[in-house]
C-alpha cells in the first residue's frame, strides 16, 4: 500500500500500464518535459523514451492523430489539458473515434483514452470549470468514466487503457490533491460500467460522481445519520450501472441526484428517466436533482452561487424526505 492522491494514482496507473504494454503511448500539451501542468505525467518522459510526446498546441490534432495511432496498432493516451478544450476536437471524437468500430464492421477499432481534468470550485479561469459528461454520454460508441477518489482513479484508468473502445476519462480537478488514500502499489482493475455503493441505507438514494461525491460524503457526515442514506458513486457515466441505481431506488423509494453540470439535459435527466421507467411504482415522491443553473459557468466570484453546495444538497434531501 502507498498513500496517494488522485494525481499520483493517475500517474501510477499510467506508469504501470506503460510498463505492461509497449503499445501504450502518451501525448498532449506539456505532458513530456514538464510532466503535465498538474504533473499527472511526471517522470514518464524519462522512463519511457520515445513513447511520451509534447505535441504542438492543437487539440484536434492530438485527438485526430490519436485516432490514427489507435487504428494502426498503438494505444494512445491523449491528455487534453483542460476539459474546456474538448469542444475543438469534438468532431474527431464524435464523428470518428466513437464510430470506427461500427463503420468498419469491426475491422478497425479505436482503443483510445482521453484524459482531461474537469469541474469547478477552484477559482480557475474561464472555460476551466465546466462539467460536460452528458455531452459525451450523448455520444454513442464512447465510454465516459469519472473517478471520485485515488483508489478508483487508478483502477478505472487501468481499465480504460485496457478497454478495446474509446474512453473519456474525466478527472475531478477540485479534488486532485484533496483526498489521500492508501492504495495498492500493485496493479488492479475496477470495471467500467459498475457503480459503487459507498454507503448502504434505506430511506433515500443519493447519487453523485466526481468531486460532488466528496461533497455528499462530507454532508452525510455532518448530518450524522439523520436519515439512512444509500450513497451511490456512479463512477461510469456511460455505460452507466442502471441496475444498481434501480435496485437502490426500489429499496429506498426516494432519490436525490447531484451534479455540477447544468440542469437541462444534465445526466440526472437520464437517471430520472430510467427510474421513471423501472422504479416508478416504488417512489414515495419525485426525484430531486441538485445541479447548476442553465447558464455559462461564471467567473470565479460567482462560482459558489452557481455550483451545488452542501446547503443546496441538504435542502434537496429534506425536500424528498418531507414530501
Amino acid at each position: 500500500m502507498v498513500v496517494a492522491n488522485i494525481i499520483q494514482a493517475v500517474n501510477m496507473a499510467l506508469k504501470q500500464e506503460m510498463q505492461r504494454d509497449s503499445k501504450v503511448v502518451v501525448l498532449g500539451e506539456d505532458v513530456g518535459v514538464n510532466g503535465g501542468v498538474f504533473r499527472a505525467t511526471d517522470g514518464l518522459y524519462k522512463e519511457f523514451p520515445g513513447r511520451v510526446f509534447d505535441t504542438p498546441l492543437a487539440e484536434l490534432g492530438i485527438v485526430g492523430t490519436s485516432v490514427g495511432m489507435a487504428v494502426n496498432g498503438l494505444k494512445p493516451i491523449a491528455e487534453i489539458q483542460f476539459s474546456g478544450f474538448m469542444y475543438g476536437p469534438f468532431d474527431q471524437i464524435f464523428s470518428h473515434a466513437a464510430r470506427i468500430r461500427m463503420r468498419s464492421r469491426g475491422r478497425f477499432t479505436c482503443p483510445l483514452v482521453i484524459r482531461t481534468p474537469y469541474g469547478g470550485g477552484i477559482r480557475a479561469l474561464e472555460l476551466h470549470g465546466e462539467s460536460g459528461e452528458a455531452i459525451f454520454a450523448h455520444t454513442p460508441g464512447l465510454k465516459m468514466v469519472v473517478p471520485s477518489n485515488p483508489y478508483d482513479a487508478k483502477g478505472l484508468l487501468a481499465s480504460a487503457i485496457r478497454d478495446p473502445d474509446p474512453v473519456i476519462f474525466y478527472e475531478p480537478m477540485r479534488i486532485y490533491r484533496a483526498i489521500k488514500q492508501d492504495i495498492p502499489e500493485k496493479e488492479y482493475l475496477i470495471p467500467i460500467g459498475k457503480a459503487n455503493i459507498v454507503q448502504e441505507g434505506n430511506d433515500l438514494t443519493l447519487i453523485a460522481w466526481g468531486a460532488s461525491l466528496k461533497m455528499c460524503k462530507d454532508l452525510l457526515e455532518e448530518m450524522k445519520g439523520r436519515y439512512s442514506v444509500e450513497l451511490i458513486d456512479l463512477r461510469t457515466i456511460s455505460p452507466y450501472d442502471r441496475e444498481t441505481v434501480i435496485n437502490s431506488v426500489k429499496k429506498t423509494g426516494r432519490c436525490v441526484i447531484v451534479h455540477e453540470a447544468i440542469q437541462t439535459c444534465g445526466f440526472a435527466a437520464e437517471l430520472i428517466a430510467a427510474i421513471n421507467e423501472d422504479a416508478m411504482l416504488s417512489l414515495h415522491g419525485p426525484v430531486v436533482r441538485v445541479t447548476s443553473p442553465d447558464v455559462p459557468f461564471p467567473l470565479y466570484r460567482l462560482e459558489n452561487d452557481f455550483l451545488p453546495s452542501m446547503a443546496r444538497i441538504k435542502k434537496g434531501i429534506e425536500k424528498v424526505m418531507e414530501f
Partner: peptide
C-alpha cells in the same frame, strides 16, 4: 450580483432560467 449570471445569456431569460 448572482442574478448577473442569468442576465446576459439571452436577450430574454428562458422560463427554465
Amino acid at each position: 450580483d448572482p442574478k448577473d449570471m442569468f442576465k446576459y445569456v439571452f436577450a430574454e431569460m428562458t422560463p427554465a432560467q
